[in-house]
């Protein structure tokens, strides 16, 4: 019975009846993920056939050939069968060939290095414990945590890491690629629908590995162009709003040495230009005043193992924290 249930679930997966509305390897939003889903389905289909044959033979045999009371003598001692041996060697070989041909083809297609292609949008990805840095060398933009990309355009990535191994993955767009310090790996994705997709780290990288999420924000081309424009427009030197000016002071005194608010500067920790528009705080919490404040008060509490950013709960007063948060929320 159990096996039947399992086959049912398997066939559900197979038929693409997804368990989630969200973009995922089973519900890809780009050509890379679609190719990979084709391969998954193909291999799952072949393997499903193999399972069916094995299960059928197995259950028939164990039911049909139970030992009965009347079985006194030993059954016939069969040595083997050359004919059968050949059959169950050749058929798997054929199945494997069917699977191997597209495997090899797609290994080359999806493994292509498009980073030198002038028609792609190039993004340099750097994995850090526990956040993602995204640099757009063609556009001279540095940002973090939100990977903004245009729809229907190939985006090529150069991927590396600054400390330990990470792995860069947007499940809804395609397969992952490891981020290895001292090494540069390449990958490309393209998205065919707009929206916000989950991004993840998929290589154990320390305590907050599970929380090292990011978001891929896929925009229409003109929206993307606006975003680029916004990012390239620096904030005014002086903050005119009196309320915000105080927050800005606090930011200058405590934060700016690590966090740039100018998208043309690399900075050592997440660049905060356009922070108010980000999908999340710390990569996985809703972007609202409460969470921002909680993060600044004690980053380590939200993301265990964060060692570079100090806790500000005893450095800044509650009032100062509120002002700082208010300022951060004005960074659009």
């Amino acid at each position: 019975m159990m096996f039947l249930l399992m086959m049912l679930t398997l066939s559900l997966v197979l038929s693409g009846c997804s368990f989630t509305e969200e973009a995922s390897p089973l519900n890809p939003q780009g050509s890379v993920g679609e190719s990979q889903l084709f391969l998954i389905n193909l291999s799952l289909g072949i393997m499903f056939g193999v399972l069916a044959v094995v299960f059928a033979l197995f259950f028939y045999a164990i039911i049909r050939f139970r030992r009965k009371k009347s079985d006194k003598d030993y059954p016939e001692q069969v040595e083997g069968s050359h004919k059968l041996e050949i059959i169950w060697t050749v058929i798997p070989l054929i199945l494997i060939t069917i699977l191997a041909v597209p495997t090899v083809i797609y290994a080359f297609v999806l493994g292509e290095d498009l980073t030198e292609d002038p028609d792609v949008l190039l993004v340099e990805v750097v994995g850090h414990q526990y956040w993602w840095e995204f640099n757009y060398p063609q556009l001279d933009i540095y940002t973090a945590q939100d990977l903004v990309m245009p729809v229907d355009k190939t985006v090529a990535f150069k991927i590396t890491a600054s400390d330990v191994l990470h792995s860069f993955w947007i499940p809804g767009l395609g397969g992952k690629m490891d981020a290895i310090p001292g090494t540069e790996n390449v990958l490309y994705y393209d998205a065919n629908t707009t929206g916000v997709l989950k991004g993840k780290c998929v290589e154990l990288c320390g305590q907050s590995h599970a929380l090292m999420d990011f978001k891929a924000v896929v925009l229409e081309q003109d929206e993307f162009d606006t975003w680029v424009e916004d990012m390239k427009t620096p904030y005014p030197e002086e903050v005119e709003n009196v309320e915000l000016a105080e927050g800005y002071e606090i930011f200058k005194n405590n934060c700016i040495s690590c966090h740039a608010i100018d998208a043309t500067q690399k900075g050592i920790f997440p660049n905060l230009k356009g922070f108010a528009n980000r999908e999340t705080v710390a990569g996985f919490k809703d972007n609202n005043a409460e969470e921002i404040k909680a993060w600044i008060e004690d980053p380590n509490k939200m993301k265990p193992g964060v060692s570079d950013m100090p806790a500000f709960e005893n450095v800044l007063s509650d009032e100062e924290l509120d002002k700082l948060v208010e300022y951060l929320q004005s960074l659009d």
Partner: peptide
Amino acid sequence: VTGVMLAVAPANAQMHDT
């Protein structure tokens, strides 16, 4: 059989480390 599925290198990129 899931081992054979994982052997499909390009698709493995979706399944690896999950």
